[in-house]
Design a protein around this nucleic acid. Sequence first.
DNA 1: CCAATACCCTGAGTGC
DNA 2: TGCACTCAGGGTATTG
Length: 285
Amino acid sequence: MPELPEVETVRQGLAKWVTGRRIATVEVRHPRAVRRHLAGDAHFAAVLAGRTVLDAHRRGKYLWLPLDSGDAVIGHLGMSGQLLVQPATAPDETHLRIRFGFDDDGPELRFIDQRTFGGLSVSEGGAELPAEIAHIARDPIDPAFSDDDFVAALRRKRTEIKRALLDQTLISGVGNIYADEALWRAKLHGARPADALTGPAARRLLGHVRDVLGEALVQGGTSFDALYVNVNGESGYFDRSLNAYGREGLPCNRCGSPIRRESFMNRSSYSCPRCQPRPRGTAVG
DNA sequence: CCAATACCCTGAGTGC
DNA sequence: TGCACTCAGGGTATTG
């Protein structure tokens, strides 16, 4: 499940393998893989053909490739998306959705997505920062991220702290895995109300979010099932470092209590019942 | 305006 | 063997 470390790993691969190359052909193999493009798949392909990729950028879990036309290709991997740089001779992947060929006859760029929660789109004039993703907050690895602004905004939220961590307009790049890991490190239960956090507690939590994202990034991200891979098809190995996520019933690495799993927002939350007690007055979900 | 929920999707896994 | 069901969950549209 690609979160910031995984998407950043992909961005670095794109910057290395695609920057400076001119798109020759774009083949759309599945209509749902192209997003927000009312003019249709053929137009999507036509707009991109002949354009040179200038760089690879990221905002939260979104990627974008600025083009020499001033437009940009926006990409989101969703749950199961991959962007792979593959030799043109490599057989088509089962869930190949979009293929980019380049006029240097070098390797192709392929968008592969089993569950089609991800997709690519064109942002007109979006080379600097696509308007479509301008609502996404900066991530805590971004040098321009403001700790003070985040702490203040978090403590204004009338919601649970885990919901707030997953709110990409508040802080970006955090998904279910790293939210659980940061909360475990901070010894906080995700159901605690955000507006009840003290300033120092909020600041500590942010520090743990930043640490866990940074450590995972160094390790090339997390992979459970090889669905997530970098542009060369290689998996990260941060899953060996997880303390909470996916560890139901296994002993907490701090106190030995069995990690619990609770249902939350149609997904699972993992936490230590002793280190991360539920806030008073909340039922076990 | 803000918070919470429904929905999109497919393959893996499970129970009968 | 196969069928029904559950689960994975990011982002957006919709609802409250």
